[in-house]
């Protein structure tokens, strides 16, 4: 078992993520509630028409990259909620990316590599167990998002959206796995554990920017495959159009497996970051 996976090491890695998980989940929760409350207040202040006009003034490329309709009626709860979930997808991708990039730290940026790799486990075991711990943490984060979403639906008497939210959060997880794996691979090129935050920010920013560029110019349409919104239209799922691009997600999961294999191969060869 120690050749490829270690349960005691998994427990250790999960515990080292606890503080970090609580912080991120709290931030996600607060952000979600803030966005929902903001829209609700705008609704009662009579500003949905103003917002619709403002949204329609955005370049089509920006709204198109987020797979949103050009004209949105913010008086509709589904539209409000759909936009909130779009934002939560980005938050989830940032967290997934950070988890991937910081896999070999003890949660604060300090490397506990000497402890982990001096134990009688192979490098591949340490890498795979580390990845599994990050995956579980990410899954738990999505559980929190789902529970908060359910609470929002319940408080607005909109429990009919529950199945759509479940589909959306499930799709979040599948997209976030791709970010986790890619950042996990990029971390093998890091010189220091403190670069994890930078990597996560850069990865998410670039993928979303590529999506915008891909929408702006037809010749650059291929860049849209880098955007998380090209795999899942969260807005479409919530409002009932159910746009989940299965082929895209399958391709993304294949990319995940390739990233993981390359990560294992890299970790078997490189010098470990010791500080």
């Amino acid at each position: 078992m120690n050749e490829y996976f270690s349960f005691p090491l998994l427990g250790y890695k999960l515990k080292s993520r606890t503080k970090n998980f609580l912080v991120w989940s709290t931030i996600s929760l607060c952000l979600f509630i803030l966005i929902v409350v903001m829209f609700s207040n705008l609704l009662s202040a009579g500003l949905p028409e103003f917002i619709s006009d403002m949204a329609s003034s955005f370049p089509g490329a920006v709204t198109g990259s987020a797979e949103q309709q050009e004209t949105m009626d913010f008086r509709d709860f589904g539209v409000n909620f759909g936009v909130c979930m779009q934002i939560m997808l980005v938050v989830g991708c940032v967290y997934a990316s950070y988890l991937g990039a910081s896999a070999n730290t003890n949660g604060r940026g300090d490397s506990d590599v000497c402890f982990v790799y001096s134990l009688p486990v192979s490098r591949i075991c340490a890498v795979l167990t580390s990845f599994a711990a990050q995956l579980i943490t990410l899954f738990l984060h999505n559980i929190v998002v789902f529970l908060v979403s359910t609470a929002v639906l319940f408080s607005n008497n909109k429990m009919t959206y529950l199945s759509k939210v479940l589909l959306a959060v499930g799709a979040f997880f599948l997209i976030e796995i791709i970010y986790l794996a890619v950042s996990f691979l990029l971390a093998t090129f890091m010189n220091s554990g403190s670069q994890a935050s930078s990597i996560s920010a850069v990865v998410v920013t670039i993928t979303i920017l590529f999506g915008v560029l891909g929408s702006m110019a037809k010749t650059l349409a291929i860049l849209k495959i880098f955007s998380p919104y090209s795999y899942i239209s969260v807005f479409g799922i919530i409002t009932g159009e159910s746009r989940l691009y299965v082929v895209g997600i399958a391709a993304g999961l294949l990319m995940t497996v390739i990233s993981l294999v390359l990560s294992c191969s890299r970790y078997n060869q490189i010098d470990l970051i010791l500080d």
Partner: peptide
């Protein structure tokens, strides 16, 4: 092999005895 690094760092939220028990299980 028993190894002691120059600057040992561990999971900060765990108790010392829990870190030691984890290492004992793996070893």
């Amino acid at each position: 092999i028993g190894f002691m690094p120059s600057n040992p760092t561990y999971c900060e939220t765990m108790k010392a005895i829990d870190v030691i028990r984890t290492a004992a299980k793996i070893k």
